[in-house]
Design a protein around this nucleic acid. Structure first.
Length: 830
DNA sequence: TCCTACGGCGCT
DNA sequence: AAAGCGCCGTAGGA
């Protein structure tokens, strides 16, 4: 144990006499000078915790005296926080020379910090910088967690919130406007924290009394169901898993619902274990009891009550379908989707995280284990209780538009996507295996070719290890040290980049070209061949998971595996030179074909409407090609005379606008398409004249986020902005467009299957990729299905939608070769 | 054996 | 530094 004693208060400051010998730094006087306690108010509202004492503080022996301290004091003055309300300390109590601070050092200093917090009993803790935040909360990523109160993870015997701010010393590394911006940002974070303290959000009343029960007998089951059947509205949650302890992503044959929990009010929860977890997997109930009693009554609840949960739509509902055979539950709300609409920020929708943030509940998942049935059910009770409480807190915060979005887009699309995930998509694992063999032999050839290189051999002798073309460090060494090449581009981490752009520039370096080819082959093999083979189930079906809540724009994300980034063109070797081989393993079953419906230029059409640009709207209304029209107009030539270069240039500009590209980047891009810089500038000038509405709209968006700090799309999606830098401005230019376009796809996802069912057509959605839907369709009903899908996708009407939206249709036996569907002559060939 | 960060790369 | 994603391998640490 470290030794310290509390000294009397001197000049209103509590000082600790630090004679610390806890770690090896104390053994060597060359390693450090002072060991420092904190300093500040006796009963502080704010306890500031930095990383380690600054060099000047170290010399003087008191925190807040050096330039770091003065800077923090200045920030506090600007934020209106009185220094007499603060106490300042650090996670590490000394500042060893060379600043070689390691996590092991904190282990010794930890007790000082705990003692500090206990004795000073501050209202809140403010952690300055990444490291102190991690040690105080266990979480990482200051920029993500700014403006949040996180529970302190140190054992101090009570709940206390930690508010992270950035490391003030970061200001010493920036200058000019960047400094001003960062300074303002830090002040506003402090002001925010002050507001939280003043409006009392930091006071955690402690948990209210709870009534959590777990069913252990058949009588309990009867009592629970009788009680739950009285209610109208239930929060529900499942614990699922492989009863043999083998983790699996999709409900396989040994994956079961381990237990199920309900809550009908705050503090109220009932858990029903279905399988006991122990050394061997055993059924919790006597033979037949589950099927005869539990399942039917569960089914009744899930079908007849108003059910809500946390990510229930896509996760729990899939398991309910598999285990209980109920196709859809009666879902009226989802706390995760609800929160997503209120705060689109990524990675903030975890149940426990939200419960800590919005309710008085304390963390409970820390020591979670599925193997102890009792414990598992207690946690399940907390889960459903948290879900119930979150609904009462979050649902009233939704505005009318967000409520509409939830009821008409998120939940319906979620139900359909659950179905899509459950059914899966057919892949030919046989073809994948064949392709894998081919790729392996090609990779071997490429590796052998590289082995013959003199530079590679030099590398191996010098480093006494085999050259690995998959290691950027090896590649960098070979090119720089052994080929003597000068690289220019840097990575984010400050190292010389050897990415595709760099290697393509080295067209006369055979090693670079071989590595490029190696990477292409390896990517195809590892991500797509092996990845898909691993994902396929015993029926050669691949079940992805679509995440509705994971993007800031409202687009879907696809994972395990990601089916939204299947290569569309493979250009390696003879076998792969035409179209996409990987895509072609996604095939329809005999008697069926795939029908792909893509929204055509949906983002630009949305832009035309949102910007209310007369000319652009006119072009789309007339069904003309926007890029050619733009090129023709600005070059002042007839459309027919527009060269491919001119059209490409115009297209780059149009897409650049959608992505919020800066003017000089636009010019560079346009020049790269084969134009002079002069022509590029003239083009932009004329483009502005042609589409003034678009350019005005972009200016307006920037103004908008500066003033109100958020945007809202016509469908009610919002994106919030904490700071306004160039990155946020680009995001603001893109967000309404990408988001609104994406919602058309989601609307169609929810509507198409419904219409196909009404028409009794044998077709089902198997995939979706941002602006396209892919159906598997029975051949003899192809034209009816194609017509139905097209009319749904193109049939959306909103008062702000002032241009037609168009779906291009393609079809084929597999995803790799699709042919355009021509409605004019009712034909397509496979 | 697990974790994380990084570099790199696939898609709309 | 052109928006939005997820997954692979390496490398270092636990």
């Amino acid at each position: 144990m470290p030794q310290f004693s509390l000294l009397p208060i001197v000049n209103g400051k509590v000082r600790l006499d630090m004679k610390c010998v806890a770690c090896e730094l104390s053994q060597n006087p060359d390693l450090r000078t002072n060991c420092m306690s904190g300093s500040g108010a006796e009963n502080p509202t704010y306890l500031f915790v930095g990383h380690a004492p600054g060099a000047e503080d170290d010399r003087i022996g008191e925190p807040m005296t050096g330039r770091n301290g003065q800077l923090l004091q200045r920030l506090l003055r600007h934020a209106g926080i009185g220094i007499t309300d603060c106490y300042f300390t650090n996670t590490l109590r000394c500042c060893p020379y060379g600043k070689n601070l390691k996590e092991t050092h904190f282990k010794h200093c930890r007790d000082y910090l705990i003692k500090d917090i206990k004795q000073l009993n501050p209202t809140v803790i403010v952690s300055a910088g990444a490291k102190s935040m991690t040690w105080l909360t266990g979480s990482k990523g200051v920029s993500k967690l700014r403006r949040r109160g996180l529970p302190c993870c140190l054992p101090i015997g009570r709940d206390i919130l930690v508010f992270p701010i950035r490391q003030p010393a970061g200001l010493f590394h920036v200058e000019g406007s960047e400094y001003d911006q960062l300074f303002d940002e830090m002040v506003s974070d402090l002001v925010w924290i002050k507001e939280q303290v003043e409006c009392g959000i930091v006071h955690r009343a402690g948990d209210i009394e709870t009534d959590y029960q777990t069913a252990r007998t058949e009588d309990d089951i009867e009592r629970f169901f009788a009680e739950l059947e009285e209610k109208d509205c239930l929060a529900c949650d499942l614990e699922t898993g492989d009863i043999n302890f083998e983790p699996r992503l999709f409900p396989g044959k040994d994956c079961k619902i381990i237990s199920i929990g309900f809550s009908s009010g705050i503090g109220h929860a009932r858990a029903i274990p279905l399988y006991a977890r122990g050394l061997t997997s055993v059924l919790y109930w006597p033979d037949g009891f589950m099927e005869k009693v539990i399942y039917p009554r569960l089914t009744k609840l899930l079908k007849e009550k108003e059910i809500f949960g946390h990510n229930f739509v896509s996760f729990d509902q899939k398991w309910v379908r598999k285990e209980l055979g109920i196709p859809y539950c009666n879902i009226k709300y989802d706390t995760m989707l609800g929160h997503y609409l209120l705060n689109e920020e990524r990675g903030t929708h975890d149940l426990e995280f939200l419960a800590i943030l919005y309710t008085t509940m304390s963390p409970w998942k820390a020591s979670f284990t599925l193997s102890d049935t009792d414990k598992m059910c207690q946690y399940l009770c907390r889960d459903v209780d948290a879900t119930f409480r979150l609904r009462t807190i979050l649902e009233p915060q939704l505005n009318d538009l967000q409520r509409w979005l939830l009821d008409n887009i998120l939940i319906p699309a979620g139900n359909v996507l659950m179905d899509v995930e459950y059914n899966g998509v057919n892949v030919s694992t046989e073809n994948l295996h064949n392709l894998n063999h081919y790729l392996e032999s090609e990779i071997k050839k490429e590796t052998e070719r590289l082995q013959k290189s003199k530079a590679v051999q030099e590398f191996q002798i010098l480093n006494v290890k085999t050259f690995n073309p998959a290691s950027p460090a090896h590649v960098r060494d070979v090119l720089q040290k052994h080929k003597g090449l000068r690289l220019q581009k840097k990575t984010d981490g400050g190292k010389y980049s050897v990415d595709v752009e760099v290697l393509e520039g080295l067209s006369d370096v055979p090693e670079a070209q071989a590595i490029l080819r190696y990477r292409k082959l390896e990517k195809l093999k590892s991500t797509y061949c092996i990845g898909l083979i691993k994902s396929a189930d015993e029926n050669n079906k691949v079940h992805t998971t679509y995440k509705i809540h994971s993007t800031v724009t409202g687009r879907l994300a696809s994972e395990n595996p990601n089916l939204q980034n299947i290569p569309r063109k493979d250009t390696v070797g003879k076998v792969l030179e035409d179209g996409s081989i990987i895509k072609s393993v996604f095939a329809s079953q005999p008697g069926y074909c795939l029908l792909q419906a893509d929204y055509s230029q949906i983002e630009l059409r949305v832009l035309a409407c949102l910007a209310n640009d007369e000319r652009m709207i006119d072009i789309y209304k007339k069904g003309q090609d926007l890029h050619s029209q733009a090129a023709a107009a600005v070059f002042n030539i007839p459309v027919e005379q527009v060269t491919p270069e001119q059209r490409t240039g115009a297209k780059s500009v149009n897409f650049g606008i959608v992505y919020g590209m800066s003017l000089d980047k636009l010019i560079a891009k346009f020049s790269a398409a084969g134009n002079t810089e002069e022509a590029a500038k003239r083009f932009l000038y004329l483009h502005k004249n042609m589409f003034p509405g678009v350019w005005q709209y972009m200016e307006d968006q920037e103004q908008l986020i500066r003033v109100q700090r958020f945007q809202e799309t016509p469908f009610g999606r919002r994106r919030r902005y904490q700071d306004i830098t160039s990155a946020e401005i680009r995001q603001a230019l893109n967000f309404p467009i990408q988001s609104t376009a994406s919602d058309f796809t989601l609307l169609s996802i929810s509507r198409c299957p419904q219409v196909l069912k009404e028409l009794q057509l044998d077709a089902r959605l198997v995939l979706t990729v941002h602006d396209s839907l892919i159906f598997e369709v029975r051949l003899d009903q192809f034209w009816q299905v194609a017509q139905a899908v097209k009319s749904v996708m193109e049939g959306w009407r909103f008062d702000w939608l002032t241009v037609p939206i168009v779906a291009d249709m393609e079809a084929g036996k597999n995803w790799g070769k699709l042919k355009k569907v021509k409605f004019s002559d009712f034909s397509f060939s496979t």
